[in-house]
Structure formats: C-alpha cells, structure tokens
Write a protein that binds this DNA or RNA. Structure first.
Lengths: 339, 339
DNA sequence: TTGAAAGCGCTAACAT
DNA sequence: ATGTTAGCGCTTTCAA
C-alpha cells in the first residue's frame, strides 16, 4: 500500500537542459526540429532526452504564447453507429498522421447536445472542429463565431457552409432511389425511419425520394418515424408495424441499411417474398448488405472518404495552407435484388 | 477576404475580474464553486461572465500547479468495430457526465501502435487511461509506470492487472461454447478467426473452446486465420475457403458474430443447411444475430456495461475515492438455432 | 470574504 | 549557434 500518492514530477526542459549542459531553449529547438543548433548539440540533447524518458508537455505548449494547439474536436451523432464509426476511424487515422489529437463527442441528433459538447471542447482551445451536421443551434453559431477556428461540416454537403463542408447531397440520393423505384414498377411506398428529430436523420433523403416518386405517379402511402435509434431491431419491428397497418404498400424505403436489413429479415421470417411481394430499399452501403441471402438495393456512401477528406481539409486550414472549402462526395446507387 | 488572421483573444479571468470590480481569484472561486465569496459577489461575477461569453481555458488549468487534468485517454482495437463502438459510446457518456474529456486512439491489435498512442496521449498529461487489452509492450509498461496515473485494462479480465481491470474471461466463454457444441453432437470443428496477431482477437476463446471440445471427444480439424479485419465479408469468404478444403467438419466456431453472420449467409446462398449440415457458433452478441433468418447461437457480451464500469472505476480512482480494482463482467451463452 | 504573488513548462522575441 | 527574458491563464498559498 502506498503511503501517499506522490505526484511523480515528470522531467521538463530545464532538467534536460541542465543535464546536457545547454539552455532549455536549445533543448526546445532540438525537440521541435527548429533551426539553430549544431549536430553535436543535438546528439548531446537527444542522449539526455532518451536517458530520462522525457515526455514533452503539450499542455504547456498549447497553452503558451503562439498557442499552436494540436487538439481537434469531432462530433458525430452516435459513436456506436456503423456508418459514423467508419468516418471516425478514418478521421482519427488522418489526424494522427498529421500530429493532431482527436477529441470526440456525440450529439444524438440533438442540436442542444452539440452545443453543449462544443462549449466543453472549446475550453480546450482546439485548432479546429469537425461537425456532422449542417444545422446548428444559435448558441453553437455564436460559439463558433467567437472562437474563430476552422470548422468542417462533414456529412450533408452544405454549399454555403459556416466555413468548409464535405459530404453528399441527401436529397439527390433519395431522388435517385425514388426514380429507380418508379422504373421498377413500384407505386405505393412507405417511408420508414428512426429518430430523425433533427437533420441528418434522412429527412432530405425522404424528400428527394418523395419528389421523384410522386413525379413518376407513385404515392407515399405511409410514413413511419420510430422513436428509437436506427438499427437492426428497429427495422425488424418497424417493418412489422408498417405492414400490419395494411395499407397495401408495395415497397419500403428505409432510412438506412440497418433498418432495411431488419425489415428484410422480418419479411423472410414471414415468408413475404422480396422483391415480388414487397420491394425494399436501404441507404448507406452497409457491409452486410451485399452478403445477406438477398442483396440489398441501397445507396453506397464512401464513409472513409468523407472522413479522410474532412480531416485533411481541416488540417490544411489549420496550417494556413490553401484548400477547397466545399467538396462534394458522390454516392452511388447499388443494384441488389430487393427492389 | 480577411486582412490578417487576427488571433481573436478570448477573454480571460482578469478581464472578467476588472469588469466585475473584483480580483481574478474571486472570479476563479466563483466559477469553480469553491468557498469564499458572497452571494452578491457571485451575481456580479456571473453577470459579467455571461455578458462576455467567457469560456474558461482548461489548458491553463490543467497545466498549472495542481494540474487537475480532466483529460482521459481510451484506446480500442478499431473505432469502426460494432462491439467497441458500443463500449466507446458508454465510456464517453460516462466521462462526459463526470466532467472528463475523452481522447481516443486505436491500435489495430498491434502492441506497438498502442505504445505509440500512449506516448502521444501522455504528453497531454491525462488524469488516467483505459486500455482494451491485457498484454502490452515493454515500452508501454515503462510509460505507464513513469506516468503514475490510474489505468483500467478493460476487455479481457486481468486478474493481476497493472492497476485495475474490468472484463470477462475469454477462455471461459470459449469453454462454454465448446461444451455446448459437444452436447449438441458436434465432433469435428473448424475455428475461423481474423487478424488475431495479438491478444483480444479471441485466441483465449479458441483455447477455451478447444479444451472442452477435445475433452468431450471432439477434434479441432482445421484452424483458419484470415489476414483481414473481422467483418461480414471476411466471414463470408472465410467460410467458403474453410468448407472448400473439404475436411468434413461439422461445425465452425467463429471469432465473432460478424464473421459468423457472413458464414451463415454463405451457407444459405449455397443451400447448405444450418445447423443440420453444419453448425455455426459466434461470439459477441451482435444486434443482427437475433433478427436474421436464422438466430445465431452466440455468446452475449455486455459491451455497454463494460464501458460504463471501466470509466466509472477510472474516475473514482482519479478522484481518490475507494473502488474495486477488478470487476468481472459475465458473458452469457445465447441459444439460437444455428448449433 | 477577498486579494496579491508566485509559478506550472513551454516558446516567441530579442539579445549575444 | 546559443542564451535570456517575458508571459500565456490559471490555481495554490499566503496574507489581509
């Protein structure tokens, strides 16, 4: 049992400097690979650094004058989302390569939670932030304005972004699926989504779908909004609810592939033939969509691309390098055999 | 176009203090809700704080003497994992509630990457770290020792942890599935895993399975290690490879449910009956496991529990509160109809 | 209940 | 090529 939790004082520049017989500025220069030291000095310093296991204190560096913070914040709807998990992974990988530290957060589709997160993250004086939405609370807007740091809005494309934006056009991807549905002969569709209180829950997609579908002579017979997070279960039970209402629908357009896969499973269990009895279309390009017994018709979205491009864009802006401010990432309709 | 990127100087304690007609110490006390100010003073201060949109600088607070950092680091194998996504979500939620900031990282099952991540995170002087493994490089061990901060190893249970541990027993969950397989009459099993260079890839599970399965008179006929990340695709093609080798196996024990679901799909496509022609067992308790056309026999693991308990444990230690150092989280065999 | 002073570890600016 | 000085914004300690 320890006597007292002695706060182990980690070594600092001065100690290295003293041991190496130079000033701490010289050590600082060597460690940052700045100009102004001889090779002999470098070696002396590095020997001491390694011997002592010195770890730089980035808190002090970020805090001090110049305040070259290497902290970046990323806020997604849910950390457990299959889709955003991929985005997050590629964001973190990129930032890591570029020497930036990722701080995460989630907002669960609530603008208020995004604002709360932003407030706490700004207290760390990040070099920039990545937001997964294009709609924000007034408080969020004010905080961002005051902070004056680079911002990338990265899921929906925002063509007049706060600062920068990377993403796809929700409306268009829905529109494309609506047109395809008409071509396939469907005319009575249900829309099935979950937890889309806010944007980026697929509302724009549904609007796009509705537009082309009704233009083609179809009718949106039903619209289910589950009070649940999107997922396999939700799709399973949601489909049951939807079909039990007996509106003679001939297809369901799901908010995302997890819901669609759940729906597909329900149909299989009930021996409802897909796509003969009912057509199913998803969105997102879930990895499972292509290997299930039926291949889901869906819209593939390059999640990792979105993550990579967003983080690179932010990093460029942070370093005052030139960059495009708006980059559209195309989605692609994937023909399966469920529609 | 901006003339010069004027570094907007955010307001600080002194400015609030001046505006409120008090000293900055008083402002500091009010904001931290420490003792030593009158209600009248509090109101004066708060009015100025709100008027100016003041945001505390946590960098300075964490950096200064006392250095009560509220940063915590979490490192998982992959950020895009269905399983670790859930852990991460509950970790972040807990930390947020407790006023701690989560910094993430991933190691892709490479001890070297964990060390690299740790080194960079320690530079931020975190209050503690969460590691998703029980095996570490020597460099990692030294870094942790020198840092002297609380550590929770949180996936596999480590009964003699570096500091604290929360998790389940890999061996036992495999053992249980092996026994069940014997009971069901299986005798010739294949093990199918992916990317388990390191621990926590399920090696211990496989050992446990092998032990009880061979004890019961079964034989491990084949062992496939895919050079790929675990996932639906990997399971799909991995199963094809495995079965094509024609070793007359009667079941496959998969490293996790994503692989197993992929395998299940392959069997369905090829009209191989499950469980009659071949038995399938997974691990993890994937949400999709229970809604697919077949219900996967698997081991349910309470991912969110693990995340919540780990982060609460770390937070307690950070605050010098009493806490258990080792908490075992039980897994549960889920009977489906694939074994 | 309040304030003044010192200092955390680093780096920009300015010597030498 | 190297050193000195000052100061970032906060909190701890000590004084009033």
């Amino acid at each position: 049992m320890k006597e007292k939790p002695v706060k182990k004082q980690s070594s600092n520049l001065s100690q290295i400097a003293e041991a190496a017989g130079v000033s701490k500025m010289t050590v600082s220069r060597v460690l940052r690979d700045a100009d102004g030291f001889s090779e002999a000095t470098r070696q002396k310093v590095m020997r001491e650094v390694e011997k002592s296991g010195y770890l730089p204190n980035r808190l002090a560096a970020a805090f001090g004058p110049g305040s070259a913070s290497t902290l970046v914040g990323v806020c997604v709807p849910r950390l457990s989302s299959h889709f955003f998990g991929q985005v997050l992974e590629s964001v973190d990988r990129t930032f890591q390569k570029l020497g930036l530290q990722t701080m995460i957060g989630s907002h669960n589709m609530m603008a208020q939670d995004e604002e709360k997160w932003l407030k706490s993250i700004l207290a760390w004086r990040p070099a920039g932030v990545l937001l997964s939405s294009k709609q924000h609370s007034n408080g969020t807007l004010k905080l961002l304005r005051d902070a004056g740091i680079p911002v990338v809005e990265f899921w929906n494309l925002n063509t007049s972004p706060l600062d920068m934006s990377v993403g796809f056009n929700e409306f268009d991807s829905g529109f494309e699926m609506g047109r395809r549905s008409i071509e396939r002969g469907y005319r009575r569709a249900a829309l099935l989504g979950a937890a889309h209180d806010w944007d980026s829950g697929g509302i724009e997609r549904f609007k796009g779908f509705t537009t082309s579908f009704t233009d083609g002579g179809g009718v949106i017979v039903q619209e289910e909004k589950l009070n649940d997070t999107p997922g396999f279960y939700a799709g399973y039970y949601g489909t049951e609810n939807t079909l039990n209402q007996n509106h003679k629908i001939d297809m369901i357009y799901f908010q995302d592939d997890t819901l669609a896969i759940g729906g597909l499973s329900w149909c299989q269990r009930k021996n409802i033939r897909v796509p003969e009895d009912i057509g199913i279309a998803g969105w997102g390009g879930h990895e499972a969509a292509s290997i299930l017994s039926a291949q889901l018709t869906t819209t593939a979205v390059p999640m990792r691309e979105i993550g990579r491009i967003s983080s690179e864009m932010l990093a460029r802006k942070v370093r005052h390098e030139t960059t495009n401010d708006v980059i559209a990432v195309p989605t692609r309709l994937v023909e399966g055999n469920t529609l």
